[in-house]
Design a protein around this nucleic acid. Structure first.
Lengths: 246, 246
DNA sequence: CGGGTCGTTGACTGACTTCAACATAAGTGG
DNA sequence: CCACTTATGTTGAAGTCAGTCAACGACCCG
Protein backbone atom coordinates (compact mmCIF):
# COMPACT_ATOMS: atom_id res chain seq x y z
CA UNK A 1 0.00 0.00 0.00
CA UNK A 2 1.26 3.46 -0.86
CA UNK A 3 -0.08 6.80 0.31
CA UNK A 4 0.03 9.02 -2.70
CA UNK A 5 0.34 12.72 -2.21
CA UNK A 6 0.47 12.81 -5.99
CA UNK A 7 -3.27 12.32 -6.34
CA UNK A 8 -5.13 15.47 -5.38
CA UNK A 9 -8.37 15.21 -7.29
CA UNK A 10 -11.05 17.55 -6.07
CA UNK A 11 -14.22 15.83 -4.84
CA UNK A 12 -16.22 17.73 -7.46
CA UNK A 13 -14.28 16.03 -10.25
CA UNK A 14 -14.30 12.58 -8.64
CA UNK A 15 -15.41 9.64 -10.76
CA UNK A 16 -17.61 8.22 -7.99
CA UNK A 17 -18.98 11.58 -6.86
CA UNK A 18 -22.60 10.72 -7.68
CA UNK A 19 -22.74 7.19 -6.30
CA UNK A 20 -20.49 7.00 -3.23
CA UNK A 21 -21.18 7.81 0.40
CA UNK A 22 -20.68 11.50 -0.43
CA UNK A 23 -23.22 11.61 -3.22
CA UNK A 24 -25.83 13.63 -1.35
CA UNK A 25 -23.43 16.22 -0.03
CA UNK A 26 -23.74 19.85 -0.95
CA UNK A 27 -20.80 22.22 -1.24
CA UNK A 28 -20.30 22.77 2.50
CA UNK A 29 -20.48 19.13 3.44
CA UNK A 30 -18.23 18.16 0.58
CA UNK A 31 -15.68 20.68 1.81
CA UNK A 32 -15.70 19.05 5.23
CA UNK A 33 -15.12 15.63 3.70
CA UNK A 34 -12.41 17.06 1.48
CA UNK A 35 -10.54 18.22 4.57
CA UNK A 36 -10.22 14.77 6.12
CA UNK A 37 -9.91 12.57 3.06
CA UNK A 38 -6.73 11.05 1.73
CA UNK A 39 -5.93 8.55 -1.00
CA UNK A 40 -4.40 5.10 -0.88
CA UNK A 41 -3.30 2.79 -3.64
CA UNK A 42 -3.09 -0.97 -3.48
CA UNK A 43 -1.51 -3.25 -6.05
CA UNK A 44 -3.39 -6.24 -7.36
CA UNK A 45 -3.15 -9.02 -4.79
CA UNK A 46 -2.38 -6.69 -1.90
CA UNK A 47 -4.30 -7.06 1.35
CA UNK A 48 -6.38 -4.07 2.46
CA UNK A 49 -7.61 -5.44 5.80
CA UNK A 50 -7.16 -8.72 7.68
CA UNK A 51 -10.00 -10.17 9.78
CA UNK A 52 -9.35 -9.56 13.46
CA UNK A 53 -6.82 -6.78 13.00
CA UNK A 54 -7.22 -3.15 13.88
CA UNK A 55 -8.83 -1.04 11.19
CA UNK A 56 -8.42 2.66 11.76
CA UNK A 57 -9.88 3.90 8.52
CA UNK A 58 -12.94 3.55 6.32
CA UNK A 59 -13.37 4.65 2.73
CA UNK A 60 -14.67 4.25 -0.79
CA UNK A 61 -13.28 2.31 -3.71
CA UNK A 62 -12.53 4.84 -6.44
CA UNK A 63 -11.19 2.44 -9.04
CA UNK A 64 -10.39 -1.25 -9.21
CA UNK A 65 -11.98 -4.29 -7.61
CA UNK A 66 -11.59 -5.81 -4.15
CA UNK A 67 -13.09 -8.86 -2.48
CA UNK A 68 -14.48 -9.37 1.00
CA UNK A 69 -13.92 -12.91 2.26
CA UNK A 70 -14.43 -15.06 5.32
CA UNK A 71 -12.24 -18.06 6.09
CA UNK A 72 -12.84 -21.06 8.35
CA UNK A 73 -10.07 -22.60 10.42
CA UNK A 74 -9.63 -25.51 8.03
CA UNK A 75 -9.16 -23.16 5.11
CA UNK A 76 -12.59 -23.20 3.51
CA UNK A 77 -13.29 -19.69 2.28
CA UNK A 78 -16.41 -17.87 1.18
CA UNK A 79 -16.48 -14.52 -0.52
CA UNK A 80 -19.20 -12.37 1.05
CA UNK A 81 -18.81 -9.21 -0.96
CA UNK A 82 -17.42 -7.92 -4.23
CA UNK A 83 -16.33 -4.31 -3.93
CA UNK A 84 -16.51 -2.20 -7.05
CA UNK A 85 -15.97 1.53 -7.54
CA UNK A 86 -18.15 3.64 -5.20
CA UNK A 87 -18.57 0.79 -2.69
CA UNK A 88 -17.81 1.53 0.94
CA UNK A 89 -15.18 -0.35 2.96
CA UNK A 90 -15.17 -0.66 6.73
CA UNK A 91 -17.73 -0.27 9.44
CA UNK A 92 -18.18 2.92 11.43
CA UNK A 93 -18.36 2.11 15.12
CA UNK A 94 -16.11 -0.91 14.97
CA UNK A 95 -12.38 -0.77 15.47
CA UNK A 96 -11.37 -4.13 14.04
CA UNK A 97 -12.00 -5.74 10.69
CA UNK A 98 -14.29 -8.78 10.54
CA UNK A 99 -13.42 -9.78 6.99
CA UNK A 100 -10.37 -10.04 4.82
CA UNK A 101 -10.40 -7.40 2.10
CA UNK A 102 -8.04 -8.03 -0.81
CA UNK A 103 -7.43 -5.99 -3.94
CA UNK A 104 -7.92 -8.22 -6.98
CA UNK A 105 -6.82 -5.51 -9.36
CA UNK A 106 -4.95 -2.28 -8.75
CA UNK A 107 -7.15 -0.27 -6.43
CA UNK A 108 -7.39 3.39 -5.49
CA UNK A 109 -9.33 4.26 -2.35
CA UNK A 110 -10.60 7.50 -0.87
CA UNK A 111 -9.99 7.05 2.87
CA UNK A 112 -11.08 8.73 6.06
CA UNK A 113 -9.64 8.04 9.48
CA UNK A 114 -12.37 6.20 11.35
CA UNK A 115 -12.90 8.46 14.36
CA UNK A 116 -13.13 11.75 12.45
CA UNK A 117 -15.47 10.08 9.99
CA UNK A 118 -17.72 8.84 12.79
CA UNK A 119 -17.89 12.35 14.21
CA UNK A 120 -18.72 13.69 10.79
CA UNK A 121 -21.47 11.06 10.44
CA UNK A 122 -23.20 12.47 13.49
CA UNK A 123 -22.98 16.01 12.16
CA UNK A 124 -23.76 15.39 8.50
CA UNK A 125 -27.13 13.79 7.82
CA UNK A 126 -26.40 13.78 4.09
CA UNK A 127 -23.57 11.31 4.69
CA UNK A 128 -25.35 9.26 7.37
CA UNK A 129 -28.46 8.96 5.25
CA UNK A 130 -26.56 7.89 2.16
CA UNK A 131 -24.57 5.35 4.19
CA UNK A 132 -27.82 3.88 5.50
CA UNK A 133 -29.16 3.65 1.99
CA UNK A 134 -25.97 1.97 0.72
CA UNK A 135 -26.00 -0.47 3.63
CA UNK A 136 -29.62 -1.39 2.91
CA UNK A 137 -28.67 -1.98 -0.73
CA UNK A 138 -25.76 -4.18 0.38
CA UNK A 139 -28.14 -6.13 2.59
CA UNK A 140 -30.44 -6.72 -0.37
CA UNK A 141 -27.51 -7.93 -2.45
CA UNK A 142 -26.39 -10.23 0.35
CA UNK A 143 -29.89 -11.69 0.57
CA UNK A 144 -30.11 -12.17 -3.15
CA UNK A 145 -26.79 -13.96 -2.90
CA UNK A 146 -28.13 -16.22 -0.15
CA UNK A 147 -30.70 -17.49 -2.65
CA UNK A 148 -27.91 -18.12 -5.16
CA UNK A 149 -25.80 -20.01 -2.61
CA UNK A 150 -28.62 -21.96 -1.04
CA UNK A 151 -30.81 -22.96 -3.93
CA UNK A 152 -29.22 -22.55 -7.34
CA UNK A 153 -27.39 -25.15 -9.40
CA UNK A 154 -23.76 -24.67 -10.42
CA UNK A 155 -24.80 -23.51 -13.89
CA UNK A 156 -27.31 -21.02 -12.45
CA UNK A 157 -24.71 -19.77 -10.00
CA UNK A 158 -22.24 -18.97 -12.77
CA UNK A 159 -24.93 -17.28 -14.83
CA UNK A 160 -26.03 -15.26 -11.77
CA UNK A 161 -22.51 -14.03 -11.17
CA UNK A 162 -22.14 -13.01 -14.80
CA UNK A 163 -25.44 -11.12 -14.65
CA UNK A 164 -24.33 -9.22 -11.57
CA UNK A 165 -20.98 -8.27 -13.05
CA UNK A 166 -22.58 -7.32 -16.35
CA UNK A 167 -25.06 -5.08 -14.55
CA UNK A 168 -22.41 -3.23 -12.62
CA UNK A 169 -19.43 -3.27 -14.92
CA UNK A 170 -20.65 -4.21 -18.39
CA UNK A 171 -20.46 -2.01 -21.46
CA UNK A 172 -22.62 -2.27 -24.53
CA UNK A 173 -20.63 -3.46 -27.52
CA UNK A 174 -19.92 -0.62 -29.91
CA UNK A 175 -19.01 -2.47 -33.09
CA UNK A 176 -21.01 -5.66 -33.02
CA UNK A 177 -24.78 -5.91 -32.73
CA UNK A 178 -26.00 -3.24 -30.35
CA UNK A 179 -27.65 -5.64 -27.92
CA UNK A 180 -24.33 -7.21 -26.99
CA UNK A 181 -22.69 -6.54 -23.65
CA UNK A 182 -19.12 -7.27 -22.71
CA UNK A 183 -16.82 -6.92 -19.75
CA UNK A 184 -13.48 -8.07 -18.44
CA UNK A 185 -14.00 -10.62 -15.68
CA UNK A 186 -12.33 -9.12 -12.62
CA UNK A 187 -12.05 -12.54 -10.94
CA UNK A 188 -9.95 -15.66 -11.45
CA UNK A 189 -11.72 -19.03 -11.62
CA UNK A 190 -10.60 -19.59 -8.06
CA UNK A 191 -12.10 -16.30 -6.84
CA UNK A 192 -15.31 -17.12 -8.71
CA UNK A 193 -15.47 -20.45 -6.89
CA UNK A 194 -15.05 -18.66 -3.56
CA UNK A 195 -17.90 -16.37 -4.46
CA UNK A 196 -20.21 -19.16 -5.57
CA UNK A 197 -19.50 -21.85 -3.00
CA UNK A 198 -18.14 -24.14 -5.71
CA UNK A 199 -14.77 -25.65 -6.61
CA UNK A 200 -12.70 -24.03 -9.32
CA UNK A 201 -13.04 -27.18 -11.44
CA UNK A 202 -16.82 -26.88 -11.41
CA UNK A 203 -16.57 -23.19 -12.31
CA UNK A 204 -14.34 -24.02 -15.24
CA UNK A 205 -16.65 -26.80 -16.45
CA UNK A 206 -19.75 -24.64 -16.27
CA UNK A 207 -18.05 -21.71 -17.99
CA UNK A 208 -17.14 -24.11 -20.80
CA UNK A 209 -20.69 -25.45 -20.89
CA UNK A 210 -22.20 -21.95 -21.15
CA UNK A 211 -19.74 -21.18 -23.94
CA UNK A 212 -20.57 -24.43 -25.78
CA UNK A 213 -24.27 -23.63 -25.49
CA UNK A 214 -23.79 -20.14 -26.91
CA UNK A 215 -24.91 -18.31 -23.78
CA UNK A 216 -21.58 -16.50 -23.54
CA UNK A 217 -18.52 -15.99 -25.73
CA UNK A 218 -15.05 -16.05 -24.26
CA UNK A 219 -12.25 -14.14 -25.95
CA UNK A 220 -9.28 -15.09 -23.82
CA UNK A 221 -9.94 -16.12 -20.25
CA UNK A 222 -11.17 -12.80 -18.98
CA UNK A 223 -13.03 -11.10 -21.79
CA UNK A 224 -16.68 -12.15 -21.74
CA UNK A 225 -19.27 -11.25 -24.38
CA UNK A 226 -22.96 -11.73 -23.71
CA UNK A 227 -24.84 -11.96 -26.99
CA UNK A 228 -28.26 -12.14 -25.32
CA UNK A 229 -28.72 -10.74 -21.85
CA UNK A 230 -32.23 -12.12 -21.58
CA UNK A 231 -30.96 -15.63 -22.28
CA UNK A 232 -28.28 -15.30 -19.61
CA UNK A 233 -30.85 -14.13 -17.09
CA UNK A 234 -33.02 -17.12 -17.87
CA UNK A 235 -30.03 -19.36 -17.25
CA UNK A 236 -29.55 -17.60 -13.92
CA UNK A 237 -33.10 -18.43 -12.92
CA UNK A 238 -33.91 -14.69 -12.72
CA UNK A 239 -36.79 -14.46 -15.07
CA UNK A 240 -37.78 -11.13 -13.60
CA UNK A 241 -37.23 -8.42 -16.18
CA UNK A 242 -35.50 -5.14 -15.57
CA UNK A 243 -32.13 -6.02 -17.05
CA UNK A 244 -30.20 -3.93 -19.51
CA UNK A 245 -31.89 -3.57 -22.86
CA UNK A 246 -31.09 -6.56 -25.01
CA UNK B 1 -53.98 -9.48 11.00
CA UNK B 2 -55.91 -7.52 13.59
CA UNK B 3 -55.32 -3.95 14.69
CA UNK B 4 -55.68 -4.00 18.44
CA UNK B 5 -56.72 -0.84 20.18
CA UNK B 6 -56.64 -3.02 23.29
CA UNK B 7 -52.83 -2.90 23.54
CA UNK B 8 -51.70 0.47 24.77
CA UNK B 9 -48.34 -0.24 26.31
CA UNK B 10 -46.26 2.85 26.87
CA UNK B 11 -42.88 2.83 25.07
CA UNK B 12 -41.14 3.17 28.42
CA UNK B 13 -42.52 -0.20 29.53
CA UNK B 14 -41.95 -1.94 26.19
CA UNK B 15 -40.16 -5.30 26.25
CA UNK B 16 -37.91 -4.34 23.33
CA UNK B 17 -37.28 -0.77 24.49
CA UNK B 18 -33.53 -1.25 24.89
CA UNK B 19 -32.79 -3.16 21.68
CA UNK B 20 -35.15 -1.94 18.98
CA UNK B 21 -34.85 0.97 16.58
CA UNK B 22 -36.00 3.28 19.38
CA UNK B 23 -33.34 2.21 21.86
CA UNK B 24 -31.30 5.41 21.71
CA UNK B 25 -34.24 7.75 22.02
CA UNK B 26 -34.58 10.10 24.93
CA UNK B 27 -37.91 11.26 26.38
CA UNK B 28 -38.74 13.78 23.65
CA UNK B 29 -37.90 11.52 20.77
CA UNK B 30 -39.77 8.63 22.35
CA UNK B 31 -42.81 10.84 22.68
CA UNK B 32 -42.69 11.60 18.99
CA UNK B 33 -42.51 7.89 18.15
CA UNK B 34 -45.31 7.17 20.58
CA UNK B 35 -47.54 9.55 18.67
CA UNK B 36 -47.29 7.71 15.37
CA UNK B 37 -47.00 4.12 16.51
CA UNK B 38 -49.74 1.51 16.49
CA UNK B 39 -49.86 -2.21 17.15
CA UNK B 40 -50.70 -5.13 14.92
CA UNK B 41 -51.13 -8.80 15.70
CA UNK B 42 -50.64 -11.69 13.34
CA UNK B 43 -51.59 -15.29 13.97
CA UNK B 44 -49.10 -18.05 13.37
CA UNK B 45 -48.96 -18.75 9.64
CA UNK B 46 -50.34 -15.37 8.64
CA UNK B 47 -48.59 -13.36 5.92
CA UNK B 48 -47.21 -9.98 6.93
CA UNK B 49 -45.94 -8.84 3.53
CA UNK B 50 -45.86 -10.38 0.06
CA UNK B 51 -42.95 -9.74 -2.30
CA UNK B 52 -43.93 -7.19 -4.93
CA UNK B 53 -46.92 -5.79 -3.10
CA UNK B 54 -47.29 -2.34 -1.64
CA UNK B 55 -45.95 -1.95 1.86
CA UNK B 56 -47.09 1.20 3.57
CA UNK B 57 -45.68 0.53 7.02
CA UNK B 58 -42.48 -0.45 8.76
CA UNK B 59 -42.04 -1.61 12.33
CA UNK B 60 -40.47 -3.76 15.01
CA UNK B 61 -41.28 -7.29 16.11
CA UNK B 62 -42.34 -7.06 19.77
CA UNK B 63 -43.02 -10.72 20.35
CA UNK B 64 -43.07 -13.88 18.25
CA UNK B 65 -41.03 -15.01 15.27
CA UNK B 66 -41.33 -14.23 11.57
CA UNK B 67 -39.39 -15.35 8.53
CA UNK B 68 -38.14 -13.42 5.52
CA UNK B 69 -38.10 -15.58 2.39
CA UNK B 70 -37.38 -15.35 -1.31
CA UNK B 71 -39.01 -17.65 -3.85
CA UNK B 72 -37.99 -18.57 -7.40
CA UNK B 73 -40.54 -19.09 -10.14
CA UNK B 74 -40.25 -22.86 -9.97
CA UNK B 75 -40.97 -22.82 -6.26
CA UNK B 76 -37.50 -23.15 -4.78
CA UNK B 77 -37.41 -20.97 -1.68
CA UNK B 78 -34.64 -19.60 0.47
CA UNK B 79 -35.11 -17.98 3.83
CA UNK B 80 -32.97 -14.85 4.00
CA UNK B 81 -33.82 -13.62 7.47
CA UNK B 82 -35.21 -14.81 10.76
CA UNK B 83 -37.00 -12.01 12.58
CA UNK B 84 -37.04 -12.17 16.35
CA UNK B 85 -38.27 -9.63 18.91
CA UNK B 86 -36.67 -6.17 18.41
CA UNK B 87 -35.87 -6.86 14.74
CA UNK B 88 -36.99 -4.29 12.20
CA UNK B 89 -39.32 -5.06 9.30
CA UNK B 90 -39.50 -3.06 6.09
CA UNK B 91 -37.25 -0.66 4.31
CA UNK B 92 -37.56 3.09 4.60
CA UNK B 93 -37.44 4.65 1.17
CA UNK B 94 -39.09 1.77 -0.63
CA UNK B 95 -42.78 1.45 -1.17
CA UNK B 96 -43.05 -2.22 -2.08
CA UNK B 97 -41.89 -5.33 -0.30
CA UNK B 98 -39.06 -7.37 -1.83
CA UNK B 99 -39.50 -10.42 0.38
CA UNK B 100 -42.29 -12.49 1.78
CA UNK B 101 -42.59 -12.02 5.52
CA UNK B 102 -44.60 -14.67 7.35
CA UNK B 103 -45.39 -15.04 11.03
CA UNK B 104 -44.30 -18.50 12.19
CA UNK B 105 -45.74 -17.99 15.63
CA UNK B 106 -48.25 -15.47 16.94
CA UNK B 107 -46.61 -12.08 16.38
CA UNK B 108 -47.14 -8.61 17.81
CA UNK B 109 -45.59 -5.71 15.91
CA UNK B 110 -45.07 -2.07 16.71
CA UNK B 111 -45.80 -0.33 13.42
CA UNK B 112 -45.29 3.11 11.90
CA UNK B 113 -46.78 4.31 8.66
CA UNK B 114 -43.88 4.50 6.25
CA UNK B 115 -43.97 8.14 5.19
CA UNK B 116 -44.26 9.64 8.68
CA UNK B 117 -41.49 7.32 9.82
CA UNK B 118 -39.24 8.45 6.97
CA UNK B 119 -39.83 12.07 7.91
CA UNK B 120 -39.05 11.26 11.51
CA UNK B 121 -35.83 9.52 10.40
CA UNK B 122 -34.57 12.74 8.91
CA UNK B 123 -35.40 14.71 12.04
CA UNK B 124 -34.29 12.21 14.67
CA UNK B 125 -30.62 11.22 14.51
CA UNK B 126 -31.12 8.84 17.46
CA UNK B 127 -33.45 6.73 15.33
CA UNK B 128 -31.48 7.06 12.09
CA UNK B 129 -28.24 6.14 13.82
CA UNK B 130 -29.71 3.13 15.54
CA UNK B 131 -31.30 1.96 12.29
CA UNK B 132 -27.91 2.20 10.58
CA UNK B 133 -26.33 0.18 13.36
CA UNK B 134 -29.04 -2.48 13.18
CA UNK B 135 -28.73 -2.66 9.41
CA UNK B 136 -24.97 -3.11 9.67
CA UNK B 137 -25.56 -5.92 12.18
CA UNK B 138 -28.05 -7.53 9.81
CA UNK B 139 -25.50 -7.30 7.03
CA UNK B 140 -22.94 -9.07 9.21
CA UNK B 141 -25.46 -11.81 10.00
CA UNK B 142 -26.29 -12.19 6.33
CA UNK B 143 -22.60 -12.52 5.49
CA UNK B 144 -22.05 -15.07 8.21
CA UNK B 145 -24.98 -16.95 6.74
CA UNK B 146 -23.40 -16.83 3.28
CA UNK B 147 -20.48 -18.82 4.71
CA UNK B 148 -22.93 -21.34 6.17
CA UNK B 149 -24.79 -21.71 2.87
CA UNK B 150 -21.76 -21.77 0.63
CA UNK B 151 -19.23 -23.83 2.52
CA UNK B 152 -20.65 -25.83 5.39
CA UNK B 153 -21.82 -29.46 5.38
CA UNK B 154 -25.40 -30.38 6.25
CA UNK B 155 -24.38 -31.33 9.80
CA UNK B 156 -22.51 -28.04 10.29
CA UNK B 157 -25.45 -26.11 8.88
CA UNK B 158 -27.84 -27.60 11.42
CA UNK B 159 -25.40 -26.97 14.25
CA UNK B 160 -24.91 -23.38 13.07
CA UNK B 161 -28.64 -22.73 13.07
CA UNK B 162 -28.99 -24.14 16.57
CA UNK B 163 -26.12 -21.94 17.79
CA UNK B 164 -27.76 -18.84 16.36
CA UNK B 165 -31.13 -19.61 17.89
CA UNK B 166 -29.58 -20.52 21.22
CA UNK B 167 -27.68 -17.23 21.25
CA UNK B 168 -30.74 -15.11 20.62
CA UNK B 169 -33.52 -17.10 22.25
CA UNK B 170 -31.93 -19.66 24.57
CA UNK B 171 -32.38 -19.78 28.32
CA UNK B 172 -29.99 -21.36 30.77
CA UNK B 173 -31.54 -24.45 32.33
CA UNK B 174 -32.63 -23.78 35.86
CA UNK B 175 -32.99 -27.30 37.25
CA UNK B 176 -30.43 -29.37 35.42
CA UNK B 177 -26.72 -28.68 35.31
CA UNK B 178 -26.18 -24.93 35.08
CA UNK B 179 -24.24 -25.08 31.84
CA UNK B 180 -27.25 -26.36 29.94
CA UNK B 181 -29.17 -24.18 27.55
CA UNK B 182 -32.58 -24.90 26.13
CA UNK B 183 -35.09 -23.33 23.78
CA UNK B 184 -38.20 -24.09 21.82
CA UNK B 185 -37.37 -24.35 18.15
CA UNK B 186 -39.48 -21.68 16.44
CA UNK B 187 -39.17 -23.42 13.07
CA UNK B 188 -40.57 -26.58 11.49
CA UNK B 189 -38.17 -28.96 9.75
CA UNK B 190 -39.39 -27.51 6.50
CA UNK B 191 -38.63 -23.94 7.57
CA UNK B 192 -35.22 -25.07 8.78
CA UNK B 193 -34.53 -26.58 5.38
CA UNK B 194 -35.51 -23.29 3.73
CA UNK B 195 -33.11 -21.48 5.98
CA UNK B 196 -30.23 -23.87 5.37
CA UNK B 197 -30.57 -24.59 1.68
CA UNK B 198 -31.28 -28.27 2.37
CA UNK B 199 -34.22 -30.63 1.99
CA UNK B 200 -36.40 -31.32 5.00
CA UNK B 201 -35.33 -34.98 4.91
CA UNK B 202 -31.69 -34.02 5.29
CA UNK B 203 -32.59 -31.72 8.18
CA UNK B 204 -34.45 -34.52 9.90
CA UNK B 205 -31.60 -36.97 9.38
CA UNK B 206 -28.97 -34.59 10.71
CA UNK B 207 -31.09 -33.63 13.72
CA UNK B 208 -31.36 -37.34 14.49
CA UNK B 209 -27.62 -37.77 14.03
CA UNK B 210 -26.82 -34.89 16.41
CA UNK B 211 -29.21 -36.41 18.94
CA UNK B 212 -27.66 -39.89 18.58
CA UNK B 213 -24.20 -38.37 19.06
CA UNK B 214 -25.26 -36.58 22.23
CA UNK B 215 -24.72 -33.06 20.86
CA UNK B 216 -28.35 -32.14 21.50
CA UNK B 217 -31.30 -33.65 23.36
CA UNK B 218 -34.80 -33.47 21.91
CA UNK B 219 -37.81 -33.52 24.19
CA UNK B 220 -40.68 -33.55 21.75
CA UNK B 221 -40.02 -32.13 18.30
CA UNK B 222 -39.54 -28.55 19.32
CA UNK B 223 -37.87 -28.52 22.72
CA UNK B 224 -34.08 -28.61 22.30
CA UNK B 225 -31.57 -28.97 25.13
CA UNK B 226 -27.89 -28.24 24.55
CA UNK B 227 -25.82 -30.00 27.17
CA UNK B 228 -22.53 -28.52 25.97
CA UNK B 229 -22.56 -25.27 24.00
CA UNK B 230 -18.85 -25.52 23.23
CA UNK B 231 -19.37 -28.92 21.64
CA UNK B 232 -22.23 -27.61 19.50
CA UNK B 233 -20.10 -24.70 18.32
CA UNK B 234 -17.33 -27.10 17.32
CA UNK B 235 -19.88 -29.06 15.32
CA UNK B 236 -20.87 -25.80 13.64
CA UNK B 237 -17.30 -25.17 12.57
CA UNK B 238 -17.25 -21.97 14.68
CA UNK B 239 -14.28 -22.63 16.87
CA UNK B 240 -14.07 -18.96 17.74
CA UNK B 241 -14.97 -18.49 21.38
CA UNK B 242 -17.29 -15.84 22.71
CA UNK B 243 -20.35 -18.04 23.12
CA UNK B 244 -22.40 -18.31 26.24
CA UNK B 245 -20.55 -19.78 29.19
CA UNK B 246 -20.73 -23.53 29.07
C1' DC C 1 14.81 -23.68 -20.93
C1' DG C 2 12.53 -24.26 -16.31
C1' DG C 3 9.24 -22.70 -12.92
C1' DG C 4 5.09 -20.44 -11.69
C1' DT C 5 0.26 -19.21 -12.19
C1' DC C 6 -3.98 -19.99 -14.25
C1' DG C 7 -7.20 -22.71 -16.68
C1' DT C 8 -9.26 -27.13 -18.80
C1' DT C 9 -10.73 -31.77 -18.91
C1' DG C 10 -11.42 -36.72 -17.42
C1' DA C 11 -12.54 -40.57 -14.17
C1' DC C 12 -14.23 -41.71 -9.93
C1' DT C 13 -16.45 -40.81 -5.42
C1' DG C 14 -19.64 -39.26 -2.16
C1' DA C 15 -22.92 -36.08 0.13
C1' DC C 16 -27.15 -34.66 -0.46
C1' DT C 17 -31.54 -35.15 -3.05
C1' DT C 18 -35.42 -37.64 -4.64
C1' DC C 19 -38.99 -40.76 -4.15
C1' DA C 20 -41.51 -43.42 -1.12
C1' DA C 21 -43.37 -45.59 2.97
C1' DC C 22 -44.56 -45.09 7.47
C1' DA C 23 -45.18 -42.81 12.36
C1' DT C 24 -47.18 -39.49 15.44
C1' DA C 25 -50.21 -36.00 16.91
C1' DA C 26 -54.07 -32.77 16.64
C1' DG C 27 -58.46 -31.46 14.95
C1' DT C 28 -63.14 -32.51 12.95
C1' DG C 29 -67.45 -34.52 12.55
C1' DG C 30 -70.16 -38.75 12.69
C1' DC D 1 -65.53 -42.56 21.37
C1' DC D 2 -63.70 -43.54 16.96
C1' DA D 3 -62.81 -43.00 11.94
C1' DC D 4 -60.89 -39.74 8.96
C1' DT D 5 -58.05 -35.95 7.52
C1' DT D 6 -54.16 -32.98 7.68
C1' DA D 7 -49.75 -31.41 9.20
C1' DT D 8 -45.47 -32.72 10.75
C1' DG D 9 -41.62 -35.70 11.32
C1' DT D 10 -38.66 -40.05 10.56
C1' DT D 11 -36.36 -43.46 7.97
C1' DG D 12 -34.92 -46.33 3.87
C1' DA D 13 -33.28 -47.12 -1.01
C1' DA D 14 -31.80 -45.34 -5.26
C1' DG D 15 -30.14 -41.53 -8.14
C1' DT D 16 -27.43 -37.43 -9.29
C1' DC D 17 -24.85 -33.21 -9.07
C1' DA D 18 -20.85 -31.37 -7.66
C1' DG D 19 -16.44 -32.59 -5.27
C1' DT D 20 -11.94 -34.92 -5.35
C1' DC D 21 -7.87 -36.41 -7.43
C1' DA D 22 -5.05 -36.19 -11.29
C1' DA D 23 -3.08 -35.08 -15.76
C1' DC D 24 -2.32 -31.76 -19.02
C1' DG D 25 -2.24 -27.14 -21.74
C1' DA D 26 -1.39 -22.07 -22.26
C1' DC D 27 0.96 -18.23 -20.92
C1' DC D 28 4.36 -15.27 -18.64
C1' DC D 29 8.73 -14.10 -16.84
C1' DG D 30 13.41 -14.73 -15.30
Amino acid sequence: MQTSPAITTKCVDCAIRHRAVCSRCGGDELARLEEIKYYRRYNSGETITIAGETMDFVGSIISGVATLTQTMEDGRTQMVGLLLPSDFVGRPGRSSAVYDVVAVSDVVMCCFRRIPFENLLGATPAVAGRLLEMTLDELDSAREWMLVLGRKTAREKIASLLVIIARRAGSPCTESSPGNIWFNLPLTRDAMSDYLGLTLETVSRQMSALRRDGVIRLEGNRHVVIPDMRRLMEEAGDDADGGLPG
